[in-house]
Amino acid sequence: MNKGEWSIDWKEKSQAIWRVSERNAHSATTEQASKWLSLLEIGAATVSLATIYLAVYSQGISPLYSEMSVLILLLGVFSLIFAKRVKPWMLHIQLLAGTAMVSYTIYMSQRSDPAVFTVVFFAWIVIYAYSFFSPLQATAHLITVFVGSALAFELGVGITAPLGDWLFVSGTAVVTATFTLRLVAQLAKVSHLDRLTGLPNRRYVEDKVWPIHNDFAIALIDLDDFKRLNDTEGHIAGDDVLQDLAFRWKGELRFSDTLARWGGDEFLLLMPGCSDHQMRAVLERLFDSCFPLSFSAGFTTCLKNETADLKSLILACDKALYQAKARAHSQRREDAIVAVR
């Protein structure tokens, strides 16, 4: 079987990745995201109240600003208390409400000065959105910042340079979004890669890859006698073997396949659109390229419209792997690869 025999369904893959990013929201749980949004609201309200009463109160600031700040403060405290009960859509509603309040503050001020202050809160909103939401969702919030600030500056009759102020706010929001997105991507890459082999790690499989397909094959691969290699040749030699195998095995796979280091000398292979026969053929190629070492592997397939969770599939593959482990010392690849029955 040649690698070129299988074509990559780019449309399906992109849709699958989008669904996963929607579910994971950058791997942050809803409870964590809710707590951070609560702290953001409490911080923004505190800064706003401190600014009003310590810096600009003598300028005749409308009581409305204080009332809105207190409202945001109470919302933040309320959200912090009930963080475990918050639903994902509630986070979006709160962030949209924050954008609307900041924009309304600009409009009601009837002066250009608030642009200098409120741009800070818009930046906070953008940082939060790109830290906890998917890129597309965060960009939608960035657009609401553009629209909200544009309307506020345009409708505010006392604002002397609405276009200039709006460009200042928008430029700051874009720069904030760009650097936040880059930082989040870098952190995600570090947390999802195995430093030794450069392969995806267990967390990446659980967070990003699973489950993006409903028609796939999955295998668990465990090297034979790897502990003895470490004991006799040293751990540096063992690390070199793992790096070499990762490099060789990746060359045998398609772009859409995922080879991950599951832990120690154990690897997980997930191949979308792959039959039982095709998975066995791939595992046999990997077994041949593993020489002079050998491995034991257990694998199974999940067909379209079948439902299975990752944990149950791993347990099934693990049982098959140990069946193979009991007879793998024959060095025969037919014995070393066992399918789940």
Rank of each mutant, 00 (worst) to 15 (best):
E5D: 15
S7E: 07
W10A: 03
W10C: 02
S14I: 11
W18H: 14
R19T: 11
R19N: 15
R19G: 14
V20W: 04
V20L: 08
H26K: 12
S27I: 06
A33Q: 07
K35A: 11
W36N: 12
S38L: 01
S38N: 03
A44V: 13
A45Y: 06
V47N: 09
A50G: 15
T51A: 12
V56P: 08
S58A: 14
Y65I: 04
S66V: 08
I72G: 00
L74F: 15
F78C: 06
F78E: 05
L80V: 07
F82D: 13
K84I: 06
P88V: 01
P88C: 04
W89L: 03
H92W: 00
H92N: 01
T99Y: 00
S103H: 02
S103T: 02
Y104R: 00
S109L: 03
R111A: 14
S112D: 06
F117R: 08
T118P: 01
T118W: 08
W124M: 15
W124S: 14
I125F: 12
S134L: 00
L136G: 06
Q137E: 15
A138Y: 10
A138C: 13
T139K: 10
S149Y: 01
E154K: 06
I159R: 06
P162S: 05
G164L: 13
D165S: 13
D165G: 06
W166C: 05
W166G: 02
G171F: 10
G171I: 09
A173W: 10
A177H: 12
F179G: 01
T180E: 10
R182K: 08
R182T: 05
L183D: 03
V184H: 05
A185N: 10
K189H: 15
H192T: 13
R195P: 15
L196K: 09
V205R: 07
W210A: 01
I212H: 09
F216E: 01
L220T: 08
I221A: 00
L223N: 02
D225F: 12
L229H: 10
G234H: 02
A237E: 09
L242P: 05
L242I: 08
D244N: 14
D244T: 15
K250F: 03
G251L: 05
E252V: 06
R254D: 06
D257P: 09
G263C: 11
D265S: 12
P272Q: 04
S275E: 05
H277Y: 11
E284K: 13
E284T: 08
L286H: 07
F299H: 00
F299M: 00
F299K: 00
T300G: 03
E306C: 07
A308S: 13
K311M: 11
K311I: 14
S312C: 07
L315F: 09
L321N: 04
H329Q: 10
Q331C: 08
D335Q: 10
